[in-house]
Write a protein that binds this DNA or RNA. Structure first.
Ligand SMILES: [Zn+2]
Ligand SMILES: [Zn+2]
Ligand SMILES: [Zn+2]
Ligand SMILES: [Zn+2]
Lengths: 134, 134
DNA sequence: GCGGAAATTGACAATCGTTCTCATCCGCGC
DNA sequence: GCGCGGATGAGAACGATTGTCAATTTCCGC
């Protein structure tokens, strides 16, 4: 097995700023918008750094990532595996656990001889509030 | 309601070429690669046109689209609603039907007061053949 | 078969999100 | 405090996708 030389992650003002900004938002946000939020409140962090920090957080399991509308969105999430129910209007997000779906995914993959299965399961809709405001 | 003037779709050599090229492939392909395939076999079609044709096919339900690795992939698919099991190495694809998952998605959305639910459900893995070739 | 309105095409420019480059900076173990 | 190697940031580079617009083609009615 290729024993990764362990990247060795450091603690820096920028990374902390990104982590905090992400934690402060309850919705999925893009690297771009998060970068602007940081700017807005004086915390100066380079755009490239925001991208790197978010990628690192996602890699470390501290954030979930999903692509929607051509861009990648991030959200600080529960460490355990789960899925999302997202309001396509306001971004409100509900974390979902569904053992049945996990089982189904693994089983279907196995039935067709596929190994190392991963899956993408997300539900988009309009939350009650946004639906009422129509 | 803004009564869409109904776009009125026309039949052209280019659109047919794209439709055929897509049908000829059993895997998910990108607009770019499909454009090159067409070029390779003499059928000259502009890149922008390939993008437009694929978008139209997807809109008309004649093709399924999914984003993976920063690009959008298309595949000629069964008209009825279904999901996919995809080999992340060779692209081999299996169409999946899962009434249980459909039910789960709708139910979960309703439980949280979400309306007009849509969902993304895809499973990626390594097909038996690609797994053996490791 | 013709004429003409409307849809379509294609070469190219323009966007857009994201990644790369590289000189400088700085966290951290000693 | 010293030094190594990861981290940062400004801007260039990139690759996918979309917009522009004049020229072309389809299709409908006559
Ligand atoms: Zn909402
Ligand atoms: Zn899952
Ligand atoms: Zn395969
Ligand atoms: Zn479904």
């Amino acid at each position: 097995m290729t024993a990764q030389p362990a990247p060795a992650r450091r603690i820096t003002r920028q990374r902390e700023a990104v982590r905090d900004a992400l934690a402060a938002s309850d919705e999925f946000v893009s690297a771009q918008s998060l970068h602007q939020s940081l700017r807005a409140e004086g915390s100066s962090v380079g755009l490239a750094t925001v991208y790197r920090a978010l990628a690192a957080l996602a890699e470390d399991g501290e954030a979930d990532a999903l692509q929607s509308g051509g861009e990648v969105l991030y959200r600080a999430c529960t460490p355990s595996h789960h899925h999302h129910l997202i309001c396509r209007r306001c971004g409100r997000t509900v974390e979902l656990e569904a053992a049945a779906v996990e089982r189904w995914a693994g089983q279907v993959a196995a039935e067709h001889g596929f190994v190392e299965p991963e899956h993408v399961v997300d539900i988009f809709g309009l939350c009650a509030e946004c639906a009422a405001r129509r």
